[in-house]
Each structure stands twice: as structure tokens, then as C-alpha cells.
């Protein structure tokens, strides 16, 4: 009986790998990317790449467990949701006003520890931001928003 259950679970696990749920695809070329097309200070690039880009860009670095269902579905669901909300790979398609609004929301969420999400930092300790990084990000947002506003 135990063997049968184990075998059924194993078969089920294999079968669910082929279900096309929450598919996420990366793009190698992103001509509208924030980092590639704008002068972003090195410390901010580091923050964006380590703490934001996995969910908020077309350049998601998926860990090994992110390829195995059902974990894959959860990871891809978060990435889909993240890209839909803010996608830094499409940054230059936004108007200056939209960029200022997105930046303001990003700074607030980072200052309030709402981003990066806890489920993400539990698996990516390097994505955790310390107080000085949060302040640096908020200062950059203020400065960049001012530049965008005066364009």
C-alpha cells in the first residue's frame, strides 16, 4: 500500500512537470532597460540587480528549484506578477511622469521592507537590504525623479 502511494506521488510529480502553468520567458535583448540606458550609480545597479531584477525585469535568474513543479509555479507566478507591476527592462517605454510614480512607490516599499518580498529574501539572503542601502536607494530616487521632472 505504502509503495503504491509513493509510486503514485512520484508519477504525479513527473507528470506535473509538463503542465504549462505560469510560463516565464527571459529576453536577452532589452533595449529599454533601466540600467543599460541610463546613468545609474554602481551601488544602485547592485541593489537593482541583486534585490529587484529577478522579479522586475526580463532577466530573471532562476535557481535550480525554480525549474521543478510545483515550486516552479510559485516562482513563475511571482515573476509574472512582478513584471506586470514594474518591469525595469521596459523602463524607457514609460513616460517621465510614470517613471517618477514608479520610483516613488519603489522607494516607499523598500523603506517599509515590503520589497524585496520576505519569501524571496528567505531564499536569497544577499537580496536583503541594510539601512544604508535603503537610504541610498531613496536618495537616488529623489535625485533621479528631480532630473526626470525637469526634463
Amino acid at each position: 500500500m505504502k509503495k503504491k502511494i509513493l509510486l503514485s506521488v512520484a508519477i504525479l510529480l513527473v507528470l506535473i512537470q509538463f503542465l504549462p502553468i505560469f510560463k516565464v520567458e527571459n529576453q536577452s535583448k532589452n533595449p529599454g532597460d533601466l540600467i543599460q540606458n541610463n546613468t545609474v550609480p554602481a551601488d544602485i545597479v547592485q541593489i537593482l540587480k541583486t534585490s529587484c531584477y529577478d522579479c522586475h525585469s526580463n532577466d530573471t535568474k532562476t535557481p535550480w528549484y525554480g525549474y521543478i513543479a510545483p515550486v516552479k509555479w510559485l516562482v513563475n507566478y511571482d515573476v509574472q506578477k512582478g513584471r506586470k507591476h514594474v518591469n525595469f527592462s521596459n523602463w524607457n517605454t514609460l513616460s517621465s511622469v510614470e517613471k517618477i510614480k514608479v520610483l516613488d512607490e519603489c522607494a516607499d516599499e523598500i523603506l517599509m521592507d515590503e520589497m524585496p518580498m520576505k519569501i524571496y529574501t528567505s531564499m536569497h539572503q544577499d537580496a536583503l537590504l541594510n539601512e544604508s542601502q535603503k537610504e541610498a536607494f531613496a536618495s537616488w530616487v529623489e535625485q533621479y525623479s528631480e532630473e526626470l521632472y525637469n526634463q
Binding site: 517618477i100 512607490e105 525623479s145
Partner: peptide, 12 residues
């Protein structure tokens, strides 16, 4: 707040 932030806040 500086003007850009005010604008963002009103939109939010």
C-alpha cells in the same frame, strides 16, 4: 515634499 514627489503622491 519636493514637486516630483508631490506629483507622484497625488497620482497614487
Amino acid at each position: 515634499y519636493p514637486s516630483p514627489k508631490k506629483m507622484a503622491k497625488f497620482l497614487e
